[in-house]
Simulated scan of single mutants.
Amino acid sequence: MQSRHLSTVIRRDPAEVAAYFGNPENLPEWAAGLTDTAVRHDGDDLVIPTPMGDWRMRFAAPNDLGVLDHWVTDHTGQVTYNPVRVIAHPDGAELIFTLRQLNLTDEQYEKDAAAVTADLERLRTVLERD
């Protein structure tokens, strides 16, 4: 199983980046690889409509450390743990997403990595707009 750290540097304060990333209301604006529609809340879970059925997401407890880990449960019930960190960078903040291959073929893993990279670039663009 491979792991890969995908990151982007964002010219914003790390706390701002963490707050934006961790706010589920912002997902449709930058996470096209996951959803382009509004999510709904179901207790501590977020319910994300996808063409394959609803997916669920749960974030780690809010914290001041830039830890934005989250668990995604797909329509089959498979749970994927996604470690995410926002750390200080000389140009602002660096968001680091750890992508693991798990049960994906090499081709699926590369496609997933491309989708996450595109989402991180959209996130950077959105946060650097102002």
Rank of each mutant, 00 (worst) to 15 (best):
L95G: 00
N63K: 09
R129T: 13
L27N: 00
I10L: 10
D69H: 11
R12I: 07
V72D: 08
W71E: 12
E29H: 13
R122P: 00
D45Q: 12
P62E: 08
A19L: 03
E94H: 05
H41R: 15
D54T: 05
E110L: 09
E128D: 07
P14S: 09
Q78C: 06
Y81V: 11
G66E: 03
R129H: 14
E121A: 15
E25Q: 13
W71N: 05
G22I: 04
D69C: 06
A115C: 06
I48V: 15
M52G: 09
M52N: 13
D42H: 10
K111W: 10
E25A: 15
Y109M: 07
Q101A: 04
G92R: 00
V84G: 08
A115F: 03
Q108F: 01
M57H: 02
D91V: 02
G53T: 08
T37G: 09
V126P: 01
F59W: 12
G53W: 09
L27T: 02
W55Y: 13
G66Y: 05
P49A: 04
A31G: 03
D36Q: 15
I96G: 00
L34E: 06
I10T: 07
T98H: 03
L123M: 07
E94G: 03
A32L: 12
D13T: 01
A118P: 00
Q78K: 13
T125I: 11
A88I: 06
T125C: 08
D106A: 14
R124C: 05
V72E: 10
V84W: 09
W55E: 12
L6G: 05
G53C: 07
L34V: 13
H70D: 05
A114D: 13
V9G: 06
D119M: 05
A88F: 07
H70P: 00
R129D: 12
T8N: 01
R100D: 12
T8S: 09
A88H: 12
T73G: 00
N63A: 06
D13H: 15
D119Q: 07
L123T: 03
V17Y: 01
L34R: 11
A114C: 03
H5D: 15
V86D: 09
D44I: 09
P62A: 12
L65C: 07
L68I: 01
R4S: 11
R100P: 00
M52R: 14
Y109V: 01
L46Y: 08
D64T: 13
D44M: 10
Y81C: 08
F59N: 01
R124S: 03
E25W: 01
V84K: 11
R11P: 02
D44E: 15
D91H: 12
R124P: 05
L6Q: 10
Q78W: 11
D64P: 05
R56M: 07
W30K: 08
I87R: 15
